[in-house]
Amino acid sequence: MNDVKVSIIIPVYNVEKYLRECLDSCINQTLQDIEIIIVDDCGSDKSMDIAQEYAKKDNRIKIIKNSQNMGLFLTRCEGIKSATGEYILNLDSDDFLDLRACEIAYNATKDGYYDIVTFGSYYWNNNSASLFSEFERSSFDSGDEFGSWLFRSKNISWNLWGRLIKRDIYQANLDFLMSVNARLIMAEDVLAMFVIYHNCQRLNFISDMLYYYRYNPSSSTNDKSIENLKNCIDSFEVVIAKMREFASKNQCNKRWQKLYISLGVHECDILKRRLKIKEGKFGLMDKIGAFIEGRWFVIRRKLRVKFGI
């Protein structure tokens, strides 16, 4: 396939209920110069029968099969390795795109000038859309300029989906990302965007709402069991260690790097408190500590956003 502008990467594992809507949103994109890479993570339902059905009808669809179940993080990386498009768009297999997503986002790259284009998203639940994330139009012509803006942002966006990312930049960082020797069930986006942001110089945020993030009750993020909470904490701790490792080896904007890692630690601490509550171990001193940490987090954020300190 020649002149592929966007490679859509779709890891697939037991999503037969949602996969048709996901794939329909891809094959009907108004931008036709795309490839759709489906990575089979060895599920047990009929998802891949559906994928094969679509692949027979559309030669832009490429199917890759893992030799064994690898989880979302490494499965996505396998798709990235095979991509040939100028830009990468990550799409979770239970989500879907606005039919103009690729066209609008690709046009916002300004003929390849921007390394990454970020757009807004909706939260999709019971066939109803509500706001998930939105951005004012902002563009940056250097990593330092972006880093200063990010440091003063109230909310840090670190999801991988909802963006076009230049393939060369993404693939250049795959070795480091795939060096993670643990199965991540949470925070994989945090690590990937930390690394990608470090290597982007020109970034564009647009106000268009182009991604639909679906509430999926069977998703690991919605599993509140003690075992899953422990696994999520383990994932965050691995990711925090890898971010620190990357930062120690690469030139970067120290202020936003420190902020980004501290937010990861904050999210991990929230999970640890939830685990203690689940286990019935959340005592008075924990409540006092959580209250103090929560208030201090809010104060620090206000100082950072308003005064840049």
Results as ranks from 00 to 15, higher is better:
Lys46Leu: 04
Glu134Gln: 11
Ile165Trp: 09
Ile50Ser: 06
Gly289Arg: 03
Asp269Val: 10
Asn204Glu: 10
Ser93Trp: 10
Glu145Leu: 05
Asn181Val: 01
Ser219Val: 02
Asn159Ile: 04
Asn66Asp: 08
Asp94His: 03
Gly79Ile: 00
Gly79Asn: 03
Ser133Glu: 12
Asn173Gln: 14
Lys62Gly: 03
Lys249Glu: 15
Ala247Leu: 06
Glu16Ile: 12
Cys252Val: 07
Phe151Asn: 08
Leu303Gly: 03
Val12Gln: 05
Asp223Val: 08
Trp296Pro: 02
Tyr123Glu: 05
Asp111Asn: 14
Met193His: 07
Phe146Val: 06
Asp175Phe: 03
Tyr122Val: 09
Asp189Lys: 12
Val238Gln: 10
Ser157Cys: 06
Ser82Ala: 15
Arg295Tyr: 11
Gly120Gln: 05
Ile38Gln: 01
Asn181Gln: 14
Ile185Pro: 11
Lys287Glu: 08
Ile38Tyr: 07
Ser7Gly: 07
Ile185Val: 13
Leu164Val: 03
Leu31Thr: 00
Arg183Thr: 00
Gln251Arg: 07
Ile277Trp: 13
Asp58Asn: 09
Leu160Arg: 04
Lys302Met: 03
Phe236Trp: 13
Cys252Pro: 12
Ala129Glu: 04
Ser128Thr: 10
Phe205Gln: 06
Asp111Ile: 07
Tyr122Ser: 01
Glu21Thr: 09
Phe151Glu: 05
Asp141Arg: 06
Lys110Ser: 14
Ile80Tyr: 14
Asp33Glu: 15
Leu74Arg: 14
Glu86Ser: 10
Asp223Phe: 06
Thr221Leu: 14
Phe282Gly: 09
Lys5Glu: 07
Thr30Pro: 13
Asp234Ser: 12
